[in-house]
Computed example of a mutant assay.
Amino acid sequence: MSLTLSKKELMNKALSTITINIGKAGINDNVVEEIKRQLKSCEVVKLRFSKGITNEKENYINNIVNDTRSKLVDVRGNVAVIYKKKP
């Protein structure tokens, strides 16, 4: 999947986009479905991870990117930004 927007443009777009919080319970089907809905409407979604799950964060991000068929744009601390072009 190629990005049509530059990383800088995506990060600027992420400033005004929805943030989904991922807590100690991790991810489940409902969380993934909500991320898919938000990607469909906004293209860019920020995922904010609880500090208590930093050991699992990378696995969660990989699972979310695979399940939503999105692209990881950036990870800074406990926040990841993902992108999926609208059809």
Score class of each variant (00 low, 15 high):
3 L>I: 13
4 T>R: 12
5 L>F: 11
6 S>Q: 03
6 S>P: 02
7 K>C: 03
7 K>D: 09
9 E>C: 03
9 E>L: 07
13 K>W: 06
14 A>K: 02
16 S>Y: 12
16 S>D: 13
17 T>Q: 12
18 I>S: 14
18 I>D: 10
21 N>H: 14
21 N>I: 14
22 I>C: 05
22 I>V: 15
23 G>L: 06
24 K>E: 15
27 I>S: 01
27 I>C: 05
27 I>R: 00
33 E>V: 04
34 E>D: 10
34 E>P: 00
35 I>G: 01
35 I>C: 02
36 K>N: 09
37 R>L: 11
38 Q>K: 12
39 L>M: 10
39 L>F: 12
40 K>R: 14
40 K>Y: 15
41 S>F: 14
42 C>A: 15
45 V>D: 05
45 V>H: 07
45 V>Q: 09
46 K>V: 04
47 L>F: 03
51 K>G: 14
52 G>M: 08
53 I>P: 00
55 N>K: 04
56 E>W: 08
57 K>E: 09
57 K>A: 07
58 E>F: 02
59 N>E: 13
60 Y>E: 01
60 Y>N: 02
62 N>H: 00
62 N>L: 00
63 N>K: 11
63 N>V: 01
64 I>A: 06
64 I>M: 05
66 N>E: 13
66 N>G: 01
68 T>P: 03
70 S>E: 00
70 S>Y: 00
71 K>P: 00
73 V>A: 02
74 D>A: 15
75 V>Q: 04
76 R>M: 08
77 G>R: 07
77 G>H: 08
81 V>R: 01
83 Y>I: 03
86 K>Y: 10
86 K>N: 14
87 P>T: 12
87 P>Q: 11
